[in-house]
Simulated scan of single mutants.
Amino acid sequence: MSNDNEVVIEKGKQNDLKMKVEGKEGEPTAAFKGASWAALLVGVAAYLIGLFNASMELNEKGYYFAVLVFGLYSAVSLQKAVRDKDEGIPVTSIYYGISWFAFIVSISLITIGLYNAGSIVLSEKGFYAMAFVLSVFAAITVQKNIRDAQRARERE
């Protein structure tokens, strides 16, 4: 496939022509990439707006912000290490172990922080937990999409 979007014409069952646009092999669709970015932006924005409007001390807000940033970074780092290892790209065992450790610590920090937060009502705790999980999952997906798109470009 030489073009980014090659037009393929197929004959349907009733001899009418149908047009289909094909992307590069292995590249995520634009809809999936857009949905992933939207989920990341919605998750992070919701989490940060919640923190901004929260009636907690500034040091507590800083803790939850740092946990979000740490969680996003550790999730992307772990996804990269796991995928590199799966694809036969050399990954040192120390980096692989640290990636898992950092991800587990970030999940533990948000869990312990929300469990012990006395100034936050239960519904807010659920909101922060869900926004955190959405953000982390979306960050992994966005990173995967970027890598898949890059690999598809390199195959040309």
Rank of each mutant, 00 (worst) to 15 (best):
A66R: 09
S123M: 09
Q150E: 15
E124C: 09
V69Y: 06
F70W: 10
D84C: 06
N53A: 13
Y128H: 11
V76A: 03
N145R: 06
V7R: 04
V69G: 03
F101R: 11
D148C: 07
E27L: 04
K61N: 09
I112W: 08
A139Y: 06
F127K: 01
R83P: 00
Y96D: 06
R155E: 15
K24W: 08
V91G: 02
I89N: 01
Q150H: 07
Y73M: 05
E27H: 12
R147C: 07
W37Y: 12
N145V: 01
A152Q: 07
T29Q: 03
Y63N: 09
S106Y: 00
T111M: 01
N5V: 15
A39T: 05
Y115R: 05
A66D: 13
L17P: 01
A81E: 04
S135L: 10
L122N: 15
V67A: 07
P90H: 12
W37G: 04
A54H: 04
L48V: 14
F127W: 07
Y73A: 11
L114E: 03
T29I: 06
Y64S: 01
A102L: 11
L17W: 08
A81L: 03
V133H: 09
I98F: 10
D4L: 13
V21S: 00
R147A: 12
V69E: 10
L68N: 06
I112M: 05
S106K: 00
T141K: 10
M130H: 04
E87I: 04
K85P: 01
S123W: 07
N116G: 02
L72Q: 08
R147H: 09
S119Q: 05
L122K: 15
M19Y: 08
K24C: 01
P90A: 02
R155K: 15
I146K: 15
Q150M: 13
F127L: 05
G113S: 00
K33A: 14
Y96E: 01
K33F: 02
I98G: 04
I120M: 13
V91A: 00
G43T: 13
G126D: 01
I110V: 12
K13T: 07
A81S: 10
M19T: 13
L68I: 12
T111K: 10
L58W: 04
S99P: 05
V69I: 10
